[in-house]
Amino acid sequence: MKKLFLAPIFIMLLFSCAKEQNELPLNGTVRINISHYAEYRLTHKTLDPNTNELIIDTSTSLKPLVFDTLIYEKTLGEKFSLYKLEYYLSNITFWRNDKAYYTADTIVYINARDINNSIILSYIPTGSYDKVTYLIGIGSNRNIHGYLPATNDNVNMEWPSSMGGGYHFMKMEGYWKNNTTHKIQSGFAMHIGSNGYAAYGEYRPMNFKVISGNVNVVNFRMNVNEWWRSPNLYSLDINGNNYTMGDTAKMRQIKENGMNAFDIYQ
């Protein structure tokens, strides 16, 4: 009789174990491929067959970033070249039903001069996700002097302690020229850093599935022009606008524009 009394408990335990085993989350790998582009203005010249007039038409094309070439053009007509583009990507979070389901621990230094930039995230729980969010920069809780391993790259990205410490979130430097105002070529340095100035971005895929056993690829394509476009149309040709570090108003504009910097697709 005593044994019969224990039977239901034993059966319950058996079922609960079986259920737990079914719910064991499986993990998958996500590879984020990162590439960098900028806008290049193409001029088309054609001869009108009726009037024999030269018709000049322009269009914008997105080209893979080539450093040190003054060929790219901003919305405001300023031509620019890039000399340096370094930044951190962090807080990469996978969302399901508007709930943060998994946040990758990594803070990844990206140097756009490296052609093959990619991030491998392992142990992402399998299943469908409806949003991926990220920071270009580092969240306040980790933007602390010495938080990152002391590699040459990280050390060179440090933000001086006299200015709040932590790390530069992005260094984008280069040269620009305005052909219409005929100013001589000059430099620009878009640096953002300090807590609160990391650029937040999100991607809402229709159905992003992480499948166990697969390398699930997401492509992050940065359009450099976006850093100057929206919501803040940013001209380098305004006195003082070529340099952002230490200027919270300018850093805020750049940070806000940074939310559109990446075009993300699978």
Partner: peptide
């Protein structure tokens, strides 16, 4: 000297 390829960091306003 102001040269066209002066380091961007050194072109700070002021």
């Amino acid at each position: 000297r102001k040269v066209s390829n002066l380091d961007p960091i050194m072109t700070k306003p002021g």
